[in-house]
Design a protein around this nucleic acid. Sequence first.
DNA 1: CACCGGCACG
Length: 470
Amino acid sequence: MINSRVKPATITLSTLIIHNLAQFRIPIFQSQPYHSHHRTHRHTSKSSPEPHKPTRNLLRKPIPLLADLKQIQDPDEAISLFHDYQQMGFKHDYPTYSCLVYKLAKSRNFEAVESLLGYLQTHYIRCKETLFIGLIQHYGKAQLVDNAVELFHKMGSFNCSRSVQSFNAILNVFVDNGRSESANEMLRSCSKMGIWLNSVSFNIIIKMWLEKGDWEMARQLFDEMLEREVEPTVVTYNCQIGFLCKKGDVEGAKSLFQDMVKKGKKANAVSYALLMEGLCSLGRYKEAKKLMFDMEYQGCKLKIVNYGVLMTDLLKRGEIGEANSLLVEMKKRRVKPDIVIYNMLINYFCKEGKTTEAYRMLVDMQIAGCYPIAITYRMVVDGFCKTGEFEEGLKVLNAMLMSRHFPRMETVRCLILGLLDKGKVEDACFVLEEMEKRKKKFNFDSWEVIVKDSCTSDRSVRQLLDELVF
DNA sequence: CACCGGCACG
């Protein structure tokens, strides 16, 4: 086992920084500020002789369990709270169950999801269709297409009827996972299932053909839509506008845009963003920016995505000065940068080896109330590894783990090797130990092997790792 | 609460 008494100096340093910032009540490295609060809350409620009295609070809003459950992000903790209540004789209701199911699905704990569903089924607790739709989407994102299909077919046994919405959800899972044959098969069976395709169904199919690069088929479906008197939506047009823009045919996209307006469909911020992206990719930044002002003149509300398109282009061209001006402009217009904008800037700094700026941005964004996500942390840690600043990298990794985000395996490997190379054995141990703690939860199967494999060149390091891991 | 489209990583 790894020596757990190791306390590397860098951790103390980062803890100090966190502590200092915490004094100003800025949750710098905690993306979920409720977590620590909740921990203490649970402990007190457990030790006190009379915890929540759930039955009495039934008519009060919000029900304490549900409110608590919504604040917990650790699914294991959620389950245990759930069981606590159950043991106290609290009868769970559907909102509580569905909240827990969503939580478990989000953390990809599908085993727990299935067992909870089984419970709901045997106790005849009626589930809403949105619950199944949400789960189908989660399965799809996890590439568990077969599980999604199975759930779709099981819906009836939950006494839940399938509308076109869950049909669309499963259709989209097929398309997004490259299973166009299954999607087509599904379409052929829709009338058998008593489902009438709506505009969203057509949008998904049009997307499918466009992803295959088949413009003709996409147009054919668009025509079929009109024949069947299914009204195209702005999304129908946006899909096609986006396709043409990516091909470099901004003029074609513009005329489609005009068609849409002529038919009385109002363009939205995405329609404009797509055109702007097309213009930028043709090197026509100025026109793109002008279009952004036009859209406001046309009465279309400007969204952050429009700035995002411009920012992406500027940073791609290395125009950091212009990018900064754009940020200032956003501030003037009271458009708050979002996580995507910050990620773009941080990515730029990291790629340029400007880790100091990247780190400052990581801090600044949190002061501005925008919390890093896994991608954000990964970029900064990778950036530090690339410049050989492994101690700084560890500092950020620590913050990352504290906010319950998880690094990529390659990042961890690189960091450990770098720390060892610099003689920071204790820090390397700390990282190994933290990974060990989390490997099961994050499905981190064989990281030991990978770390060890990469050390074969250095015998002394390899021996050390053997010692650490076993 | 959540059927489809849009700026960030790999």
